[in-house]
Design a protein around this nucleic acid. Structure first.
Lengths: 207, 207
DNA sequence: TTGACAAGTTGTCACTGTATAGATTAAACT
DNA sequence: AGTTTAATCTATACAGTGACAACTTGTCAA
């Protein structure tokens, strides 16, 4: 049964294998040929579906954003309080960064991915919209005068930075032999700070 | 004079050439041989100084952190107000991310760099200390009860995220045809939010 | 002068991405 | 049914890569 000439759903199998390879060897040692090897096809097969390596990684990034959108949707399900929602979004975000490490790594590597890809853009916008909407309802509920794009940018940047810098923080804690708090806790503190920041901001105090 | 067998300061020349290559072709298409070519030496010469590719990139990252430390030091020179200092640090940080794009890219690519390298660690700690000290004086001046490590983590994460996500934000603004504010302005808004957040935080309101 | 050593060189190896051309199969259409 | 068409995968080839070993050249101290 395995000897079918046509694979059936090779694109998915390739994405899957790519994830494996990235998880094991890191994006630095990523190899298209290794991916094909694991999927059990010839090393030129991926080109027929994704064009080149950038194509495969772009597809993987798009899939990542779709997963993210789904994870964020599930995270806020049944939660009404905007602040709790915001917190849930943050936790879901960094959890995805941990559980889908390969995807998350690829999603923001603008050098390896085709930023003009339409699917990638729309998938990214969907995820962005989740956070945007959450902050909108928060500001409406508390009657705050904060530019939502600015706030969204800050929240997203903070979470993104946390994911990227986590290994650095961990190492820093090791050097000073202080225990590193679980990252979920960090998210809580971050959102706490940020919400506080939004609250005290009725008018931009640009001096 | 050019035909000297010994280069004189090949390590520096290699770092310099590496910067060029990264700036032009991106880290994804980085090539050790191309670096050697530009430095005018054979393709195996770098190995004698840096061992392998990771060694060269680690050295570049260390240099980047040293530049950062210097840039941050200069940025707060003559500034007394802690908030102005914080803002200046942020601006200097993202400016370095723009002016030394290659360095900044390498500095946080934990997959390409030897995280155990001692020079790299100390250089990183120095830069971290700048932000840490700034926040310390801020909290002392305003008598706030905020964990400095948490605050440092947030500030750094936000700035780091801003650098990484900037292309994404820009693209998002393009899609909605709204003008993207200059990144320095974003830094100002971010620090404003965060300082506000720290201020409203006398006691941890962990519900 | 001798010897040790650092700095660069050439040559080689297994491996990579991709372009091209050819083989196999499924499906669509008489 | 039978034939064409397109999709899917294989085979071959090529230029480029990182790393390794062995060799050459310069430097410097005893």
């Amino acid at each position: 049964m395995g000897s079918k000439y046509h694979h059936g759903d090779l694109p998915n199998a390739l994405r899957c294998a790519a994830r494996e390879v990235i998880d094991e060897r890191g994006l630095g040692n990523f190899s298209l040929r290794e991916v094909a090897r694991r999927a059990g096809v010839s090393h030129t097969a991926p080109a027929h579906h994704f064009g080149d390596m950038q194509g495969l990684l772009t597809s993987l990034a798009t899939e990542g954003f779709e997963y993210l959108h789904q994870a964020l949707s599930e995270a806020i399900e049944g939660i009404d309080d905007p602040i709790d929602r915001l917190n849930a979004l943050g936790v879901a975000y960094i959890r995805l960064g941990r559980d889908h490490k390969a995807h998350t790594e690829v999603m923001f590597r603008t050098d390896l991915v085709d930023a003009d890809d339409v699917d990638l853009q729309t998938a990214g916008l969907h995820a962005y919209g989740m956070l945007y909407d959450c902050l909108t309802s928060l500001f409406e509920a508390e009657d705050l005068d904060v530019d939502i794009d600015d706030a969204t940018a800050l929240c997203w940047s903070a979470m993104q930075g946390l994911i990227v810098l986590e290994p650095k923080f961990e190492r820093m804690c090791d050097l000073r032999s202080t225990p590193m708090p679980p990252i979920e806790e960090m998210v809580g503190k971050f959102t706490d700070f940020m919400v506080n920041g939004f609250r005290g901001h009725r008018k931009p105090a640009t001096s």
